[in-house]
Design a protein around this nucleic acid. Structure first.
Lengths: 153, 153
DNA sequence: GTTCCTGCAAAAGATTTGCAGTGAC
DNA sequence: GTCACTGCAAATCTTTTGCAGGAAC
């Protein structure tokens, strides 16, 4: 496995295609607004809030009702196609890779609230080991680090 | 240092006294509602939301306005006397120990939303090592594991 | 007596829901 | 044609804020 991943690179369409396919397979219809949401989410690597997705859509594609965005995100969460993250009073979403592969975590700036991703092998190993020790099976995990980002420092 | 800690044991009044003293030292006045909030927070070891604190207070002491609870929590956060945790759409608070000693993390049930604490040495070590590697200084960290708790399984 | 603190009620922001119309299949 | 999906507006929930009265010092 291993291999390199793009934490900050350009978007990959792999997730979008897979998401489209899984929605179809689960019996959902395809629609323009829904596809737009998929493209925005798949077109970035880290977290966005529902409102940020809406703003992004207004800019790049057509305006879509916020309710539709929330409803789409709910479906994507159900199908485990997105990863939710509660930070700073609102829920953030990011594309989830199959099998939880290539997991990353988040650094949140206490000053400006910006969320940025990072990876760490040692951390993953520690969590994996810990998961085996616990009674309840662990399905997902998030690690959030807080501090002051370079821009705010 | 080391020593044992009570993750699930009875409340300790140490935190309450320290909090009371630090508020005083920072120039805040003492009042009955504020003390009640301190007692509820200090009287448990893991996370509570503002509304849960309000309900608990209604039961054990007098009813206190929700705005007062939020205002008190804001002060406590400023003085680093509580640790905030965003989970399930609302902010949870728990007493913070001095110097970040005896840190614990959280397991969240996907089914019922219950939050329970756990500790892990290996995890702390991995995060500490990681913190040194990163450019920005890390001031705090949370680890959230998700799965199904014993009760819901 | 001055200044801080409190409760209430209104406001603000995030998310959910009801409903009638529109589009996918 | 049927049923899912959409947008809008209303409802709900969490958190913040304005303000007048009361308490701490």
């Amino acid at each position: 496995m291993a291999g390199k991943h793009n934490l900050t690179g350009p978007p990959t369409s792999a997730w979008i295609e897979r998401a489209e396919a899984e929605l179809r397979a689960a019996g959902y219809r395809s629609s323009k607004p829904r596809s737009s949401v998929l493209e925005i989410i798949g077109g970035q690597n880290c977290v966005l809030t529902a409102h940020e997705i809406g703003d992004e859509m207004k800019r790049k594609r057509g305006r879509v009702g916020i309710a539709t965005i929330y409803r789409t995100l709910e479906i994507l969460d159900e199908l485990k196609l997105v990863q939710k993250l509660d930070v700073g009073g609102s829920t953030h979403y990011e594309p989830a890779l199959p099998g939880g592969a290539h997991h990353h975590h988040h650094f949140v700036c206490d000053e400006c609230g910006k969320v940025s991703p990072f990876e760490d092998e040692g951390l993953e190993r520690a969590i994996e080991k810990l998961g085996k020790r616990l009674k309840h099976p662990v399905r997902e995990h998030d690690v959030i680090l807080r501090g002051i980002c370079k821009t705010c420092a």
